[in-house]
């Protein structure tokens, strides 16, 4: 399942990434395999999304969240 498919309030654990270049940026920001992510809210127009990860709040576009494979 992709992170972009979660609804606000839902949680999942990061398993892997489908894009190497993007994964570097995401991992530096704390999105590591094994981390739990929770979707906090969507922007008023439905995109981007705000997630809780590694003890802080991160926002990213849905297209970016779709490279993160999670297990709920």
């Amino acid at each position: 399942m992709k992170l972009s498919q979660l609804n606000p309030g839902q949680k999942g654990t990061i398993v892997s990434f489908t894009d190497a270049e993007m994964s570097v940026k995401l991992m530096e920001m704390g999105c590591l395999p094994g981390e739990v992510v929770e979707v906090e809210r969507l922007a008023p127009l439905g995109d981007p999304m705000a997630i809780r990860v590694a003890g802080y709040q991160l926002c990213l576009r849905k297209s970016e969240a779709s490279v993160i494979i999670i297990q709920s």
Binding site: K25, L26, M29, P48, A50, Q57, C59, R61, E64
Partner: peptide, 9 residues
């Protein structure tokens, strides 16, 4: 184009 950004408290 990228949009990965911290939302500070």
């Amino acid at each position: 184009s990228y949009f990965i950004m911290e939302l500070p408290v």
